[in-house]
Design a protein around this nucleic acid. Sequence first.
DNA 1: GTGAAAGCGCTAACAC
DNA 2: GTGTTAGCGCTTTCAC
Lengths: 347, 347
Amino acid sequence: MLPTHIITLKQIAHDLKLSTSTISKALRNSPEISAITKEKITAYAKKLNFRHNPTARALKTGSSKTIGVVLSTIENPFFAEVINGIESAAHENGYNICITQSHGSSKMEKTSITQLIRYSVDGLLISLAAETTDTGYLQSMQNAGLPLVFFDRVAPQINTHKVVADNFAGAYQATLHLLNSGCKRIAFMSSALNTSVALERKAGYLQALADKGLAINESLIRYCNQDGESNKEIDEVVNELLLLNEVPDAIFTATDNISTKVFQCLHRKGIRIPQEIALFGFTNSDLVELTAPTLSSIHQPGFDMGKKAAEMLIALIVNGAKDITFQTLVLPVKVYARGSSRCIGCA
Amino acid sequence: MLPTHIITLKQIAHDLKLSTSTISKALRNSPEISAITKEKITAYAKKLNFRHNPTARALKTGSSKTIGVVLSTIENPFFAEVINGIESAAHENGYNICITQSHGSSKMEKTSITQLIRYSVDGLLISLAAETTDTGYLQSMQNAGLPLVFFDRVAPQINTHKVVADNFAGAYQATLHLLNSGCKRIAFMSSALNTSVALERKAGYLQALADKGLAINESLIRYCNQDGESNKEIDEVVNELLLLNEVPDAIFTATDNISTKVFQCLHRKGIRIPQEIALFGFTNSDLVELTAPTLSSIHQPGFDMGKKAAEMLIALIVNGAKDITFQTLVLPVKVYARGSSRCIGCA
DNA sequence: GTGAAAGCGCTAACAC
DNA sequence: GTGTTAGCGCTTTCAC
């Protein structure tokens, strides 16, 4: 019903007194068509500014030249960066992207994915919701031939390409830094443990403690099941920590969201950082270098992650997944020790 | 080529020994179909978990139940909020959204819009790129029947629904606050003046000066043509201001991006805020209450803006634009006077 | 080298 | 009330 004079193959065929199939083939540079008619057709199509109708093409071919993206929320600056990386790689290769948000809900995640499939996306780029445990339906889709690449929050049980940050190293270094600064009771706050990310970051945290000969204190290890989506959840967890007999002298916050929220929470409570509680977190917000104190943080290469993941996905789409050894790409993180982690012993 | 057993109308028709048109009508609850067969069909469809193929439907009907969104970049937290508002209203009404970014480029903006049209989106929600001046093609599209709603950066020359923040009031109050704090030479930094937003905010700034009897100093009024996308641009403008004979004692930054970037820039230069230069900006980042000093800012209702704009667009899509008086919805902003604006005289 | 015809999954006249 | 038919714009055998 829209732009009244949308050009179709049929139109061109009519004008040029050729058949639609000839036009179709010519415009896709098929060797079946003679150079001379090809020339004529492309020239005319260009003049009319013809563009293929992607809907018709998708219906016919089952491929839409579109990549579906599923992540928790674009309000997280890290994911915003990732999307720009994805967008960059996609556009370079003639793909569009369709972004959907799960907002941390497995249900919405599944709905989104199902929707994307129905729109015949050519492949999916997924960072799982923190609460997601069942990925059976994704496995079925992969089995049915859907190209799939995970980034950030990957599904360990699904065998495909994955792009992640070096979560272990980031967490290890953050914790080590806190320890070197003199902290003894370092709390760990992360989203639920069912994500690879949370597991790896916890492992890094534990390893650092172990390397320094500190015992693990389970009461200092806390989970925000909604990944700190609600301030209430953050508040509760922080309150619990503050009511311990042995109040922590530092918190290592393992996700972007939890990091800034905990910072805000402590600030609201008037707790001095780092004097009373030191802080080290994961975040991609560039404002943390302006906060008081500046927030020590692990920075993930969001743009690169998105770009690499998209490139891997496109390779899967184009070449297929036959005879492929799936790989997990681990990207280095950057460690910024700033004011919030009370750097005593180190630079 | 995907999920091997996608259910189609044809499949159901075959199984139930009915025609596809009967199935189609029944599933859309057409009065043509008897209650009894409807019942049978819906039950069976539900059992098979049938979903309409949106691509086929879009091709047939020319409507995709999708809303196209065009904005500069989702890395701006304000736009991330807007998107969530849009998403909320869209999903409530059975629409999907397709987000595209112009990254401030008119060229990419046009490409995005053209693409969205080809995907037969039912309507467009647009916040123009700062550099965009030519909206002729959008006007043609609207004339051809495309429902269009602008938000934030609206096109004054196009007559349609618009949703904006009260930019004038926000800028006025920010400037007034700086004046009341004792600032005399308040610089104004915004994106290029061809946006409604920039114009309104400048007007608010000028009005406040006028109301306080201050003369306009053109050398204090500066534009970042890329809306401060590059740190370089910000740096240059700030440097120019610092080299003036009369160095400003305050800067009112009129966009989200410019606000945080100028803050960072001054911080890097070691300029004390607000002692040397006070700051008041527009931003939706919730981290500004943790910065040192805390950043005084105008907060726009991003979520509401998105939600309202989407609702207005959907109304246009559903009811058509005939006999409609287009309206411009102006949403109130919140003014947060914080540390960066050197509040002397006021609370 | 070009064209006719079928069909992707759906909707909508129009029959019956 | 239900079915037949045509067609959205495109691709793809398969004839010629």
